[in-house]
Design a protein around this nucleic acid. Structure first.
Lengths: 204, 204
DNA sequence: TACCGATGGGTACGATCGTACGCATCATAC
DNA sequence: GTATGATGCGTACGATCGTACCCATCGGTA
């Protein structure tokens, strides 16, 4: 047995297999980072097709790797989803953290939040779509809750450096609802309204 | 051809079929409302397994009807999802409408919103889980947007009778974010915090 | 340089799914 | 009472999926 990163609990079926007549036009590739690349591609597939439409084959095709590569790098679909959503949460939280820690005043922080909501980094279609899928998954399956918990904890901590705990909680909820509505609504609320909402929530 | 409610664009394969030797212990049932019941059961299945895990067989088993009944009453999976989510949105909006129209003052309306958020009707696990699935689906597929659009329009209209348009928008977003966080968080924010947030948003 | 484990690559298998029928039987309109 | 269409029921088919292999071939280390 060849234990890959995602070691299988193997159970031989003792079957023959056709010789792997490698396509000469497609030589073997040296591809470190393949796992990381697969996670990236997986996030795109999740955003486009939802968890419901995310399959090993679809990801493999999108990443241009053979199907077998999926089972080598990931110990099943759940492991793949967990890895992908973890990356999503960490990336997003990193941006959130960095932006907020760059703010030097309470007013700056408020405006930074407005920028995050109305900007295109945190609320890109792909990020929003994948986040929604994560929420739906985490709400149903506790083993994915750790991802959202850590994410929310980081968000609150970042807000905490500028606002009192209760305000941070309310602000976090407002951010969530605003980004969600902006993603779903045909005519999303404008920047001015977002700014007004933030100001009302953070006032002493 | 027997055109059912969900007429098939039939294409005969000209195959024989085994005689339907009905199980004598399970006589044929007279079951009007079956379609409505299937929609109800489908919402439960969606909440429990997500759209990803929602299958005709699973719903049929949960509703204790034969598999064939699914294709008779619904013209495919999308039709089923559309019907189920439409019912979800209308039911939820009905409760929202009724509760808000019962409020006679601005203060009453604010307190009614607090009650909706912290109560158990609008934010039951099943409703929240199914709603999240709808959001994720609608964000990705425009043909489901009509459901969320109508839902959001009704919510805003209901809030509109008590608050100015901009406040209604902000309040709607806050409600969304708060219910979402309460559903995902391990220790959801308390009633007091919710009330404070609502008051801050609706202040003139 | 000679190994050898880590990685790349192809494919088969069993399970499950959506769907489409064919037939049986009831409710209802006449 | 009888015809007839709506509805209930069971099952087969082709597609697709997750997964588990087997084999080939590199890269790094001894």
């Amino acid at each position: 047995m060849t234990p890959g990163p995602a070691a299988h609990r193997s159970a031989d079926r003792g079957e023959p297999a056709a010789p792997a007549a490698a396509d000469p036009t497609r030589p073997r590739r040296h591809d470190p980072q393949r796992r990381e690349r697969l996670i990236d591609v997986a996030l795109g597939v999740i955003a486009e097709h939802g968890v419901a439409g995310t399959t090993h084959r679809r990801i493999a095709a999108a990443a241009d790797v053979p199907l077998g590569s999926m089972t080598y790098h990931f110990d099943g679909m759940d492991d793949l989803l967990h890895a992908a959503f973890t990356v999503l949460a960490e990336r997003t939280a990193d941006v959130f953290d960095a932006t907020l820690s760059a703010a030097s005043s309470r007013q700056d922080a408020g405006e930074a939040v407005v920028g995050l909501i109305t900007g295109t980094t945190l609320t890109s279609p792909e990020t929003m779509l994948a986040s929604l899928e994560l929420y739906a998954l985490a709400a149903r399956r506790p083993e994915f809750r750790t991802i959202t918990d850590a994410w929310m904890a980081r968000s609150r901590a970042a807000l905490h450096t500028h606002f009192d705990p209760e305000t941070a909680l309310m602000l976090d909820a407002l951010i969530e609802g605003t980004t969600l509505h902006r993603a779903l609504s045909l005519d999303p609320m404008g920047v001015g309204t977002v700014r007004t909402a933030i100001r009302r929530i953070v006032q002493p």
